[in-house]
Nucleic acid binder design. Sequence first.
DNA 1: CCATATTTTTAGGTTAGCCTAAATTTTATT
DNA 2: AATAAAATTTAGGCTAACCTAAAAATATGG
Lengths: 219, 219
Amino acid sequence: MVYTISEENYVKAIFHLTENGKSASTNQLAEALKAKPASITDMLKKLELKNLLHYEKYYGVTLTDNGKQLALSIIRKHRLWEYFLVNKLNINWTEVHEIAEQLEHVKSHLLIEQLDKYLGYPDFDPHGDPIPDSKGNIKEQEKTRLTLAAKNTELEICSVNSRNADFLEMLEMKKLQIGTCISIIKQYSFDKSLDVKLNKKTVNISEQLAKNIYVKIKG
Amino acid sequence: MVYTISEENYVKAIFHLTENGKSASTNQLAEALKAKPASITDMLKKLELKNLLHYEKYYGVTLTDNGKQLALSIIRKHRLWEYFLVNKLNINWTEVHEIAEQLEHVKSHLLIEQLDKYLGYPDFDPHGDPIPDSKGNIKEQEKTRLTLAAKNTELEICSVNSRNADFLEMLEMKKLQIGTCISIIKQYSFDKSLDVKLNKKTVNISEQLAKNIYVKIKG
DNA sequence: CCATATTTTTAGGTTAGCCTAAATTTTATT
DNA sequence: AATAAAATTTAGGCTAACCTAAAAATATGG
Ligand SMILES: [Mn+2]
Ligand SMILES: [Mn+2]
Ligand SMILES: [Mn+2]
Ligand SMILES: [Mn+2]
């Protein structure tokens, strides 16, 4: 079966919205896909007929196994291309998401397998998200929201929660990257911001920012 | 201005059909784009309004400067991707054209400039076709149809005229590749086939095949 | 130069993917 | 439990890019 770009984007959006175990709502999808709720309803009916999702009128939508496999294959392509763009073409991680949104829809099994091999079968994309293998398996990593991490412990930034360019640019400025090691030295109760140690310097991280950073304990 | 995949394919097809200096006809385009003549007429009207082409009802179509620039930018992307697929991902030259048909429509100036740099600014694609630079300039090479080349002269295969998989597979079998050196030792008048010397062996090349191979004098 | 063949255009229709406005259903609040 | 608010669906439309069938224009060749 071959799907349109629009269909693929719907399935991918539903996958992400249902990662928390809940079903996705029409309004959430409208927001994610930048379309009106009425258009979402339209499309959900079509995708149900194609066996990609279970749709309960008024109560939301979840993916079928079929739909999950499709979503994973698109996510795989998206993240492999991002890895390529950053590590081979030297494009900034703030810019690769938009480009990968297009590349993820190129259809060629051979292409993606050769790309994976060429890249050395990477496990994570430039934002720290896991890259599904060709069967759709994902190596999840243990990670904690920086806002919830322990004080005075060696932490390593292992993923970020947003591909918003302003957010990523801010991380650049503060030298907070995937792999960067930090430890929390002070948590301010007034604005919930954090002081963290980074290379002997102290950097302040707002709650907003910290909520979108994930860390694991170093070791 | 941003164009649809369909619009880009129309402009590219017109570019190739008018390389001989003549205007392109509705039927030629219908054949090239695998659509019916009526659909072509429809689209030509739209593209004329967008200033991409000059359309003379019943008498054919040519590109505006605008249209030529667009065509060249798509051809540039197509050929750079083909180069990438063959030389970095090790995909066979028989398979890259189809994949490049999709990749050529990915929109990102930065992407294509970084790709070009990464590949080392190649001048020719895997089929020997010239790759336009970022301004749309093309380095044409002197080349002759193998059917018209001189006998007993050292020749180098420098381009092929078709991306048909059966054709390219046949070249593979006969070890005829871009860069391969040959010389014509006999031209048969009966079926117009050629015997050529290749690495001390003699290979017979049918007229069909020879017509699609271009060579330059070695030096 | 006329009649026929060929090419091209016009007219009318379809489907995918979107939209707005109105109707319906669910959820929240009293 | 009734009503108000919010979410969702339905109804009716639009545009891009196709299509078929019929009409019109051009090309051909005797
Ligand atoms: Mn991304
Ligand atoms: Mn996408
Ligand atoms: Mn090609
Ligand atoms: Mn194309």
